[in-house]
Structures are given as structure tokens and as C-alpha cells.
């Protein structure tokens, strides 16, 4: 390639990526689930596992979960009453079905209204997105459990789930 054209070509490549990336973000981020921004929620709900995005479950799920932190999937995740209230408020305000939120909506496909599911990994949509993941991969020692999203989705802490 002639040297004078190279910067131009690079410019086009940069533009191409910009359009693709921005397009994805603006399209409502097919694969984007805003991470937890509140430092208290991040600390209390993000020390045992990834601080799961509130937009992955409906408000009713978070209310039910926050009402029984003493028995949280076999663990005691309880905190004092003020902190519980603060976390609940945040999760509910940012839930999949909160206000005009459009990011998380599609993970709720097929979820019966008011059923308050407790696991993201049991949502019908989550299960179908992962049906092609082979058995051995779930049992891999770096994965260990379906809830270890980060093992496969390296951008999960930032909210990205495009593999």
C-alpha cells in the first residue's frame, strides 16, 4: 500500500470500530447490564460473588431476597437494618422492570409476573442463552458454578456479557 494512504486506511478502521461500538451502546446495549454504582451495595453484595446487576431480576425478586439474607443460598449474608433498607432501595430502583428501564427487560422473557425468581441462572432466557455451553465447561475448575459469570464473561464487572 502506498504510504500516503495508510493514515487514511487507519482512520477508516478507527471509524469503523467507533461506529460498531457506539452502535452497540446506543442500541440499548444488547449485552450491557449496568454494574452496581452504589459503593455500599457493591461491598455488601460483591464480596462473595460478582455484584450481580440489579437489571437482571425484577423488583419483586430483590424484595424477596433482601427479606431473607440470613438464609441466602445456604450463606448468612445479613447486614444491619439500615444497610438492608439502603441496598433494597437501590436494587428495586434499578431492577429489570423498574421505570422505563429497557436494558434488562429481555432477560425477563418468559418470567411469570410476581413469581419473584431468586436465581438469574434459572431464568428461562438465561438457560436458553447458555444451552450450548457443554457440561465439562460448567465443571471446569476455573468455573465451578454457573454463578461465576466472570470466569467466562471477562467484562462482567463492567456490565458486558458478549462472551
Amino acid at each position: 500500500m502506498n504510504l500516503t494512504y495508510r493514515p487514511l486506511a487507519l482512520g477508516f478502521i478507527a471509524l469503523f470500530f467507533f461506529v460498531v461500538v457506539m452502535g452497540r451502546v446506543q442500541a440499548g446495549g444488547n449485552h450491557f447490564y449496568a454494574p452496581i454504582a452504589d459503593p455500599v451495595v457493591k461491598e455488601e453484595c460483591g464480596s462473595c460473588h460478582l455484584a450481580f446487576a440489579p437489571s437482571m431480576l425484577p423488583a419483586s425478586s430483590w424484595q424477596r431476597m433482601m427479606g431473607n439474607l440470613k438464609n441466602h443460598f445456604g450463606d448468612d449474608a445479613s447486614v444491619d437494618a439500615d444497610t438492608t433498607a439502603r441496598i433494597t432501595r437501590y436494587l428495586v430502583a434499578n431492577a429489570a422492570d423498574a421505570g422505563d428501564r429497557r436494558y434488562g427487560g429481555k432477560l425477563l422473557k418468559g418470567v411469570a409476573l410476581g413469581s419473584a425468581p431468586q436465581r438469574i441462572t434459572e431464568l428461562p432466557k438465561w438457560v436458553s442463552e447458555h444451552r450450548k455451553v457443554p457440561d465439562w465447561e460448567w465443571r471446569h475448575k476455573e468455573v465451578r458454578t454457573k454463578a461465576n459469570c466472570v470466569a467466562c464473561h471477562t467484562g462482567a464487572e463492567q456490565g458486558y456479557y458478549d462472551e
Binding site: 464480596s47 462473595c48 460473588h49 460478582l50 468455573v143 465451578r144 458454578t145 466472570v150 470466569a151
Partner: peptide
């Protein structure tokens, strides 16, 4: 690391 794979 926790059982869910979160670093400590």
C-alpha cells in the same frame, strides 16, 4: 477465592 470464584 470464595466458592463462587471471587478473589479475596
Amino acid at each position: 477465592s470464595t466458592p463462587v470464584g471471587k478473589p479475596i
